[in-house]
Amino acid sequence: MIRTAVVGAGIVGLAAAHALRARGADVTLYESGPPGGGQSAGQGRIFRHAHEDPRLVALVARSRALWREWEQEFGVELVSPHGAVAIGDGVEEKIRTLEPFADVPVRRLSPEDLHGRLPLLADWTGPAMLDVHGGAIRTLDAVSALAHRLEASMLREHVLSVRRTSARSVEVRTGTTCETYDHVVLCAGRGTAPLARGAGLDLPVEVGAHVRLSFAPAPGGPGPGAGRGFPTFQDGSGAFGETGVYAAPYPDGRRFSVGLSADTPAHPDGGLADPAALAGLADRTVAYVRRALPGLDPRPVDHVHCWVTRLPWGDDGVGIWSEDGLTALAGHNLFKQAPALGEALAETVLTGTVPGHLRHEERLGRPAG
């Protein structure tokens, strides 16, 4: 039995540990804080299939199938059935990318259809689409279900260093422990690149800080369409003053989380280059909600601040580095892909080969052209 450590109990680390244990590995999961409390934080995330790289669409489609398997295994709905709406000039390109995938139904929305599904939105008569099997991920339920299954394997310790030893094993040192393993998997978010660097793997991760705000429906405002909850939403139009906006409803539908595809850079030591910029991003988000989502009360009811870790080839870039008993995952917008990434990390550990297009040299998720 292969003795494995997974560092980081965000959604991807949990998925990797779950997949490894299901395949018979002996797993220790390291996490210093609450599971899912770092880059996986928040009440909801978008599940969407639309990406510029068709290879990434295929990976996400595999992940959607695994989310369904998790729902059966854990006995709880994890992705809402209300779809993912997108608007803007990029809609037609998204549809062209998705149409070859038979298991990813997508359709254009008329202004009337769009209003019926998302009455929170201001008038919009431009291109709009529905990713039918997209939806809002119930993040807390997913993290809770996985963490419960893995509780006996979890070690509540902060990992200080990871290194290969002369005995062909990998050493993990924490504040109070020192253990060696046959294989170590790094899924530690912002901490992945520094730990990997200490063991001889250089990951070109760019770190920034991000803010998401949540809003309640406006008093007397519209609710979801008859028989439906709200879909998730992406706005690439620029018509309301911002591009790359995303929004997802809370599981109970009483809040809507909204964020911009923007962050403020961090220095290599982890300090923010401009701490005031986070407040600026929050102000821009509020201004956008006033213009684009009049069905929401523009006074935020809560904030989520988190680190983001991007790879240089694109906002949706993802890759796996693996050498001599040490595997590291890096990328951005990974929550929706967690089941497929966990499966891939388990395969990497057990076979010694990174599957599919996830080898970092392949630059999975790079934009077209």
Score class of each variant (00 low, 15 high):
Ser80Arg: 14
Ser80Ile: 04
Ser80Thr: 15
Pro81Asp: 14
His82Ser: 05
His82Ala: 10
His82Pro: 03
Gly83Val: 08
Gly83Arg: 06
Gly83Phe: 03
Gly83Tyr: 09
Ala84Lys: 02
Ala84Ser: 15
Ala84Phe: 01
Val85Gly: 13
Val85Tyr: 10
Val85Asn: 13
Ala86Leu: 08
Ala86Val: 02
Ala86Phe: 02
Ala86Trp: 00
Ala86Met: 05
Ile87Asp: 03
Ile87Gly: 04
Gly88Phe: 04
Gly88Ser: 11
Gly88Glu: 03
Gly88Thr: 07
Gly88Ala: 11
Gly88Ile: 00
Asp89Ile: 01
Asp89Met: 03
Asp89Tyr: 00
Asp89Arg: 15
Gly90Lys: 02
Gly90Glu: 04
Gly90Arg: 09
Val91His: 08
Glu92Leu: 08
Glu92Val: 06
Glu92Tyr: 01
Glu93Lys: 08
Glu93Phe: 02
Lys94Glu: 15
Lys94Leu: 05
Ile95Phe: 07
Ile95Pro: 00
Arg96Pro: 10
Arg96Asp: 11
Arg96Glu: 12
Thr97Leu: 12
Thr97Ala: 14
Leu98Gln: 05
Leu98Phe: 02
Leu98Asp: 00
Leu98His: 05
Glu99Trp: 09
Glu99Tyr: 05
Pro100Cys: 06
Phe101Tyr: 12
Phe101Lys: 02
Phe101Pro: 00
Phe101Cys: 02
Ala102Gln: 02
Ala102Cys: 00
Ala102Tyr: 00
Val104Leu: 07
Val104Arg: 06
Val104Tyr: 03
Pro105Val: 03
Pro105Gln: 07
Pro105Asp: 03
Pro105Arg: 02
Val106Asp: 04
Val106Leu: 00
Arg107Lys: 11
Arg107Thr: 08
Arg107Phe: 00
Arg107Glu: 10
Leu109Asn: 06
Leu109Ile: 03
Leu109Gln: 09
Leu109Thr: 03
Ser110Arg: 10
Ser110Tyr: 08
Pro111Tyr: 13
Pro111Leu: 10
Glu112Phe: 04
Glu112Ala: 15
Leu114Glu: 01
His115Pro: 02
His115Leu: 03
Gly116Glu: 13
Gly116Ile: 05
Leu118Tyr: 15
Leu118His: 10
Leu118Trp: 09
Leu118Val: 13
Pro119Gly: 13
Pro119Met: 09
Pro119Trp: 09
Leu120Cys: 10
Leu120Val: 07
Leu120Pro: 05
Leu120Glu: 06
Leu121Arg: 09
Asp123Pro: 14
Asp123Val: 11
Trp124Pro: 04
Thr125Lys: 06
Thr125Leu: 03
Gly126Arg: 04
Gly126Phe: 00
Gly126His: 03
Gly126Met: 06
Pro127Met: 05
Pro127Gly: 05
Ala128Gly: 08
Ala128Lys: 07
